[in-house]
Amino acid sequence: MKLEGTNTLPAPIETVWKMLNDPEALRRCTPGLHELKELEPDRYEATLTIGIAAVRGSYKGTLSITDKQAPSHYKLLLEGSGGSGFMKGEGIVDLEAQGENTVLKWVGDMQIGGIIAGVGQRMLGGVGKMLIGQFFKCLEQQLTRSP
């Protein structure tokens, strides 16, 4: 399941970059994320709860940031598994300064397996877009709120 999109965030590129690397911001803005425990720099243990179609499940796994090219590029990897199956997501984020704003381009690929795939695959595209939309909306709010 491949998804992509572009968002314009109301902050300079350095601010956006900092926020995208801030575990607290990631924790606050990733929908359903309960816990984000740093295992080593750029590698976190994550617990999240997500509902896809009729299957609401908890997943435990890791979130890691790789391919860092500050302040404009990184790759986000999320892997988790739980009673209702597993999920594996990969997001490539590119930032570009545009005056006082920053244009954020992202490409995501998500794979799910087990019960969530059998029951929820049809919903995955819609749910994925909604969750990613929530994520950026939250980032935007954080950025406008910060002094």
């Binding site: 087990g114 019960i115 795939a117 059998g118 695959q121």
Partner: peptide
């Protein structure tokens, strides 16, 4: 799907 995940495991699908 392409990863051999079964997609029709209920009578809904």
């Amino acid at each position: 799907d392409d990863e051999a995940q079964p997609l029709s495991t209920t009578f809904m699908d």
